[in-house]
């Protein structure tokens, strides 16, 4: 990689950081409890819009895992999400009415909060429908992982997005607040993913899964990216580039081994396909606030009308992280 290209990436990172700095004015604090944060705390960052129904389980899940403080940006919810979050003792909330799309799908807001509060902390950046799993997550809390990463001089941890779906129609079983979404959306595709390398930023580009199989079979190149790097020991100079798919500096994107070995990695169980989905898809279709002209939602909407069934004979039912490790979707690496 030449000097010019490297300098180009540096400028790009600076531009994102500057955007984040500019967009900080769009965030109005609703409740700021950041004075509670201690030096070794693990922080979680998240943008929400009308996700009130998911949040009780989301908060419980991550609190039990060992996250100490939550940062939410509420993008103009109308279902009481902001009020629910403001009541939580370990949550800081900011509110904004501004465009999700024009803040690069929330990343400018996230980058600002990360830069302002995340420095020198392990930071987990996830969506409200993503549940993070990592090797030994049933017996070791998240600080065990971050301590190990720290001792191994690893700064970023990859967790591939794994789309979960129910058997039968997506809207067949209604989701209740506080319920584990995996009870309904408990199936996933285990072995139809494709990987490509992005030589400029160094990250892998993963596609596939049920969304590619059902909604994007005719144009696989447009299928959503599934590679994610949600857990990073943050430094105020870092910036997420596009969603949490990749970061700059590019060294953080080398979460994979190129010489045949396996690095440790986890998974983000993506529980988007619940009973709440159809409604959401319709709304997003109207708002057009999502990536690439909400291309994804256009595809869903047309696919959902005739046969909203993602399940197939070879779908796997989710059991635990060990199953994912055996299937080769994540790895323990040399953490034993």
């Amino acid at each position: 990689m030449g000097v010019v290209q490297r300098y180009g990436l540096r400028l790009r990172r600076k531009r994102w950081r500057f955007r984040a700095f500019r967009k900080r004015r769009e965030l109005k604090p609703v409740s700021n409890r950041t004075d509670q944060i201690r030096k070794s705390d693990i922080l979680l960052f998240c943008t929400v819009r009308n996700e009130g129904i998911r949040l009780p389980y989301f908060l419980k899940y991550y609190r039990e895992m060992g996250v100490s403080h939550f940062f939410f940006v509420d993008n103009d919810s109308t279902d009481g999400t902001a009020e629910l979050l403001a009541q939580q003792p370990d949550v800081s909330v900011w509110h904004t009415r501004k465009s999700y799309k024009r803040s690069r799908f929330g990343m400018d807001w996230m980058n600002w909060l990360l830069r302002r509060y995340g420095h020198d902390h392990w930071c987990l950046t996830v969506d409200p429908d993503e549940l993070f799993v990592y090797p030994f997550c049933d017996s070791r809390p998240l600080p065990a992982l971050t301590d190990w990463l720290e001792a191994s001089s690893i700064r970023s941890f990859s967790a591939m997005l794994l789309d979960m779906y129910p058997k039968g129609r997506i809207d067949a079983v209604p989701y209740q607040a506080g319920q584990n979404p995996l009870e309904i959306a408990s199936w996933f595709d285990s072995g139809n993913y494709t990987l490509k390398r992005n030589h400029l930023l160094g990250n892998l580009w993963i596609q596939g899964g049920p969304r590619a199989r059902v909604f994007f079979a005719d144009r696989p190149e447009a299928a959503p990216a599934l590679n994610k790097i949600p857990l990073v020991k943050w430094h105020h100079r870092y910036a997420y580039a596009s969603s949490t798919h990749m970061l700059l500096p590019r060294g953080l994107n080398y979460v994979y081994d190129e010489w045949g070995g396996e690095k440790a990695s986890g998974a983000l169980l993506h529980t988007k396909f619940l009973s709440t989905f159809n409604e959401k898809a319709m709304e997003e279709l109207k708002r057009r606030e999502h990536y690439a002209g909400s291309l994804e939602y256009v595809a869903y909407a047309s696919g959902l009308q005739d046969n909203p069934e993602l399940w197939c004979k070879w779908s796997e039912k989710y059991i635990n992280w060990r199953q994912l490790e055996i299937l080769g979707l994540m790895s323990m690496g040399n953490w034993a």
Binding site: S158, A159, M160, Y193, L195, R197, L204, I206, N227, V255, Y256, D257, E258, W259, G260, G261, E262, K263, A264, S265, G328, L329, M330, S331, M332, G333, N334, W335, A336
Partner: peptide, 22 residues
Amino acid sequence: AKAVDRRTRGRSGLYMQSRFPN
């Protein structure tokens, strides 16, 4: 020993998020 082997040699024929051999 298995952990070291997994980290250095990995599982043959597997391509995934944290194993993408040249």
